[in-house]
Amino acid sequence: MYVLALVTQKGGSGKSTLAVGLAVAGMETNERVAFVEADPQGTISKWKERRGRPYPRVDRVADPAEIERALSRLEAEGIWLAIVDTAATSNALAMHAIARADLCLIPARPSPADIEAAIPTIIAIRRLKRRFAFVLNQTPPRGCRLTEAATSLNSLGVLALPYVGQRNDHQDALGAGLGVTEFAHEGRASEEIRELWRWVLKKLVEGSFDHEQHANRVAG
């Protein structure tokens, strides 16, 4: 089972909305996806109540030991991808999610405040030797601010593609208990999320291959 963690200390960066969009996009490609919600705000749990469908399942956790138990349960049930949504703070839950992740996504809006707020998260991820990528989120269509943000994030690490634009479909889908790809199947927001899902999927699988190759070299 792969573990994808969405992490950053900055509130309002869109972690939960991205998590929902990616989960539903993954389900559309027949992957078995579930959430571990490590955010007391409960955005994903509230979304699931509005959804009124059994999948994806949501396991809420309140301490690091519960994260481990939830991930073990999901893996035993044959879940292919667990997406961990974390709070907008640096706490033990977030640190444990990072430590267990095959890939960490750090959403950031194209603003100096978001980029500066990401730095402590990057330090924690690097200390734990985990793979990560930034996602430029809630972006305007164009402009020097977007270019400057992309340049800054590229200098700090890997920048996922595509950028995710600021579009009403994301919030409308969340309010309806849907993923954006269900809500506006042919919309631009859906295209961006599907493309981001393909990028994440490739990175997850590449990372697994790298780990296997490394293990084989060590064993040899």
Rank of each mutant, 00 (worst) to 15 (best):
K48M: 08
A38R: 07
I119H: 13
N30A: 14
I193G: 09
L81D: 09
H214E: 15
K129R: 14
E28V: 05
G207S: 03
L201H: 14
S190T: 10
I122D: 13
S45G: 13
L4E: 02
E206K: 10
L174G: 14
P110T: 07
E37T: 11
T121Q: 06
S72W: 05
L71K: 02
L196S: 08
D210A: 14
N168L: 13
R217H: 12
R53F: 08
N154I: 04
R145M: 04
L18F: 01
F132N: 10
E75I: 01
P64R: 05
G207W: 02
E49P: 03
Q9Y: 10
Y55E: 13
L105Q: 13
A149S: 10
R142H: 12
E68Q: 11
R127N: 14
E37F: 06
R194V: 04
P140W: 10
A184N: 15
S16A: 10
P64M: 06
Y55I: 03
L136R: 12
E31A: 13
E66W: 03
R142M: 09
R126W: 03
R109L: 14
E75K: 10
I79C: 13
A94S: 15
R60A: 11
F134E: 06
L196Y: 08
A99K: 06
K129W: 04
N154V: 05
P140Q: 09
E191T: 13
R53T: 09
H211E: 14
I83W: 08
V218Y: 09
L22M: 00
A70E: 00
Y2E: 04
S13M: 06
K46R: 12
A94M: 15
L18S: 00
V84G: 00
G11K: 07
L136M: 15
A92R: 14
D63E: 14
L105V: 15
D39L: 06
A94F: 00
F134N: 05
T121W: 09
R145F: 11
I83H: 08
D63P: 02
G177Y: 12
K15I: 08
